[in-house]
Computed example of a mutant assay.
Amino acid sequence: MMRLSDPQWTVLAPLIPAPVKPTNRGRPRRPDRDVLDGILWVLRTGAQWAALPSEYPPKTTCHDRFQEWNERHVFPAILAALYELSEEAQLLDLREAFIDGTFSAAKKGARTFGPTKKGKGTKIMIMVDASGVPLAVHTCSASPAEVTLVQDTLDASFGLDFPERLIGDKAYDSDGLDADLAVLGIEMIAPNRRNRRKTQDGRSLRRLKRRWKVERTIAWVQSFRRVRTRDEVKAENFLGMVQLACIIILLRLISG
């Protein structure tokens, strides 16, 4: 079973807001920890809500609570708080960051997806720090080129600080992107495509050897089957699942 550890819950509990309309009518509200454990079971297994084992609260309770938190933007707020905790614990290294995108196949009925050679799906953009700690996550249709999604990914950053250098593969080789990031004080490092003039210093390109860190983080995110394959009809619900996966990754780093 997928359950939060006591140290993880100690970190997370103060970050979960009280219900909007507390009421004394009807059945008592199920504890947030129990419900979140049920949501995490769906996130980890990729199973339908109806398949929730009896050890967890009912499917409607878990789904409704997930919907409530997602609509109230609770997950981005938690990510921002965990970012600050990571800074305080000196877990972040913003001297350089890595960016990459991955593909999640969208099942029938999903909204806001794009056709690609792999089929219809959603693109997940991830930025991590020099150690592979998640800094930002953004989801969109799979059709746009990754070079056009960098600014949106930066806008989705969990914190306010930008990295000194942003490192990507050839997909991010663009004079326009270089110029836009330079305004923000970010140096874009990406190998030039064959049809492009040489604009990168060979010494800077050595940093590409560490791109495995963002690939490792992507593998961590995709270990949650609800993220690997998109079942959510609404794009905002799928983003909520991806954000929740990042929350668990950050919790593991912070709580040890």
Rank of each mutant, 00 (worst) to 15 (best):
R3C: 05
L4C: 01
P7N: 02
W9F: 02
V11W: 04
P22S: 07
N24D: 15
N24F: 14
R25E: 10
P28A: 14
P31Q: 12
D32Q: 15
D37S: 07
G38M: 04
I39L: 10
I39G: 06
T45E: 04
G46Q: 08
L52A: 10
P53S: 09
S54G: 13
E55S: 14
Y56K: 08
T60Q: 11
T60S: 15
C62W: 08
H63D: 03
Q67T: 06
E68F: 01
N70Q: 03
H73M: 06
H73R: 06
P76Y: 01
A80Y: 00
A81P: 00
Y83W: 05
E88T: 11
L92C: 09
L92D: 02
E96N: 13
F98P: 00
I99W: 00
T102E: 06
T102Y: 08
A105N: 02
A110V: 10
R111Y: 02
K117C: 07
K117T: 08
K123R: 14
M125T: 12
S131D: 11
H138K: 07
T139V: 15
S143G: 03
E146L: 06
L149V: 13
L149G: 06
T153V: 08
D155Q: 15
S157V: 09
F162A: 10
I167L: 10
G176M: 10
L177Q: 11
L177R: 14
A179Q: 14
D180S: 15
A190W: 01
R194T: 14
N195R: 03
K198W: 09
K198R: 15
K198G: 07
Q200W: 04
D201Y: 06
D201C: 12
G202W: 11
S204M: 08
R206V: 15
R207L: 13
L208T: 11
V214I: 14
T217R: 05
I218G: 01
A219D: 06
S223G: 03
F224D: 00
R228K: 11
T229D: 08
T229C: 04
T229S: 05
R230D: 06
R230G: 03
D231C: 14
D231Y: 13
E232K: 01
E232G: 02
V233D: 07
A235D: 13
N237E: 06
F238L: 04
G240W: 05
Q243A: 09
L250I: 00
L250Q: 07
L251F: 03
S255C: 08
